[in-house]
């Protein structure tokens, strides 16, 4: 089986939510000596991005999206094990991500987290309703490259600005890249508060994160 065929079939297994076939394919790719990182990023991850786009158009539904991420997890678990065994584990970067204080909406952020993980980014998901102080503490603790925040409400959007202000006030702004997202956030909002990137949806969050890490 050529690597292109592996990629194609990996994408298909995700789009069809076929876990058994995905697991078999992951095992076969390893048996045939293909690079597991390449199989994840150009095969399974590509499929999950397609799935995200279809979901955004109303062409697939939430249960399928969840099932496809389960398929992804099962396949990646096998490939990850081989990566660790081969000591080639190399994250493209580390991100600390949270829904800001006062905001309990985290469905969209959860999808972003899943997609970022599939792209070889180490993700520390702090959950929802997280204070600016805690976010900064965690980012310092894990030496994050990026801090990502999500806000669904116009009232909690200000916490994204607060994060920028706090980072600047404490002389930490140059230590991290920052990304913002959530329904009321826009590119103009990101520019106004001085965030490094804005992402409209989960697929764009991955693209922007990779850009910030110079890993596209």
């Amino acid at each position: 089986m050529s690597i292109e065929d592996i990629f194609l079939e990996a994408r298909e297994t995700i789009l069809q939510c076929d876990q058994e076939r995905a697991v078999r394919l992951a095992e076969r790719a390893l048996a045939e000596g293909y690079d597991p990182v390449e199989v994840i990023s150009s095969g399974f991850s590509y499929g999950i991005r397609q799935m995200g786009e279809l979901f955004g158009r109303g062409e697939v539904f939430l249960p399928q999206l969840i099932m496809s991420s389960e398929v992804m997890k099962a396949a990646v678990q096998i490939l990850d094990a081989a990566i660790i065994q081969g000591e080639t584990t190399q994250y493209k970067g580390t991100i600390v991500i949270a829904t800001v204080e006062g905001d309990v909406h985290d469905i969209g952020k959860g999808i972003v987290v899943s997609l970022l993980k599939t792209q070889g980014i180490q993700v520390y998901d702090m959950g929802r309703d997280v204070s600016t102080v805690k976010i900064i503490e965690k980012a310092l603790e894990v030496k994050a490259d990026i801090i990502g925040t999500s806000a669904l409400l116009t009232t909690t959007l200000m916490s994204q600005k607060k994060l920028e202000d706090e980072l600047r006030k404490n002389g930490l702004r140059d230590q991290f890249k920052t990304m913002v997202g959530g329904a009321p956030a826009t590119q103009r909002w990101a520019d106004r508060i001085g965030a490094d990137a804005y992402a409209e949806d989960a697929a764009e969050a991955v693209t922007k994160a990779l850009l910030l890490l110079n890993r596209t």
């Binding site: 158009r57 109303g58 697939v60 539904f61 939430l62 249960p63 399928q64």
Partner: peptide, 8 residues
Amino acid sequence: EFILGMHG
């Protein structure tokens, strides 16, 4: 604009 498939 489209019906979200929470059930599907």
